[in-house]
């Protein structure tokens, strides 16, 4: 083969690698260069005493604490909704389903995983409109609606990680308890689930990250720019990613813009942190989530 072409290919590949690494370091470096100074307690709590704010004694007015609290409640809510359903479906798929049922169901989950998040947001919005018209005037797009929509968004990931980690257990582990007389359910609960816990947990952590960073869904289902700490499931709320989005187009002065950089750094750290934990727990199974399909 022609030497020149060979060198060109090597050079081209290195160029790709350098461009990618370079641009990602540019992005992160730029963020830190501009925003590192903004990350401090007053970014989060404004002029309120942090302890008072966390105990919800006082409202925080010019800090991003309400946004963090909103994101936190959103994540807790949607993961709490998605995990039981996801686990149960994953267990069914891995342990009970016949081959043909499995094929059909996993096709559905693949489709669900592929639906763009804005479409799920649109669904959440229509759900709110539907409930408002037919059941109660009090229902508007709110924390609960966002929680449900986000739960739908991460459901396929949890199902898939549960299924894959159960299915990848070796035959020996699978058969020992059964050979000793355990029933199928005992086998699942006492042997298979504990054995595949690391995979399942890493899936859940990545689902948490996905909920924390998603903006498109919550944009349509009740997030607002200023609402304070969410008071109930039926109230508006603030969220960190939406705050960043909002600041990027509506900032009034450099101070606000700076808090946007600060919020970006915090969100970046939060997601990177979740990601590292999940990765440390379970390397292999994360691939499903990495592809984000």
């Amino acid at each position: 083969m022609n030497r020149v072409i060979e060198y060109l290919i090597i050079a081209g590949s290195w160029l790709c690698g350098i461009v990618l690494v370079g641009s990602i370091f540019c992005i992160i470096g730029y963020l830190f260069f501009k925003g590192a100074a903004a990350v401090n307690l007053s970014l989060i709590f404004g002029r309120t005493n942090p302890i008072d704010a966390i105990l919800l004694k006082k409202q925080v007015f010019n800090g991003i604490f309400p946004a963090i609290a909103g994101t936190f409640s959103l994540v807790v809510l949607s993961v709490a909704l998605a995990v039981p359903a996801g686990l149960a479906s994953g267990i069914y798929l891995a342990e009970y389903a016949q081959n043909s049922t499995k094929k059909v169901l996993s096709l559905f989950f693949d489709i669900l995983a592929g639906i763009p998040s804005i479409v799920i947001g649109l669904f959440g919005f229509s759900l709110a409109v539907f409930l408002h018209k037919n059941y109660s005037d009090r229902i508007y797009p709110c924390l609960l609606i966002s929680g449900i929509s986000l739960a739908f968004l991460v459901l396929p990931y949890i199902i898939r990680t549960t299924q894959v980690s159960l299915e990848s257990l070796p035959m020996q582990t699978r058969l020992t308890a059964v050979a000793l007389g355990a029933t199928k359910l005992q086998n699942i609960f006492y042997v298979l689930l504990p054995q595949s816990l690391s995979g399942i947990v890493s899936g859940v952590i990545l689902a948490v990250g996905r909920c924390a960073e998603d903006t498109a869904v919550i944009m349509l289902t009740g997030v607002v720019a200023s609402a304070g700490v969410p008071k109930s499931l039926f109230s508006h709320y603030e969220a960190l990613p939406f705050y960043i989005f909002y600041i990027s187009s509506q900032y009034a002065d450099t101070q606000e813009l700076l808090s946007g950089y600060g919020a970006s750094i915090i969100l970046l750290f939060l997601c990177a942190f979740l990601f590292l934990i999940a990765f440390a727990i379970q390397k292999r199974l994360c691939y499903q989530m990495l592809y984000r399909v």
Partner: peptide, 30 residues
């Protein structure tokens, strides 16, 4: 193509990239 050390580094960077929130890409983009 790359020597193992750089390959490992690149893989880590790429994996890290999947964890960066979309809104942060957008923010820096603006």
């Amino acid at each position: 193509l790359a020597p193992p050390i750089f390959a490992g580094f690149l893989r880590k960077v790429v994996q890290m990239m999947t964890g960066i929130p979309t809104v942060v890409f957008g923010f820096v983009g603006i």
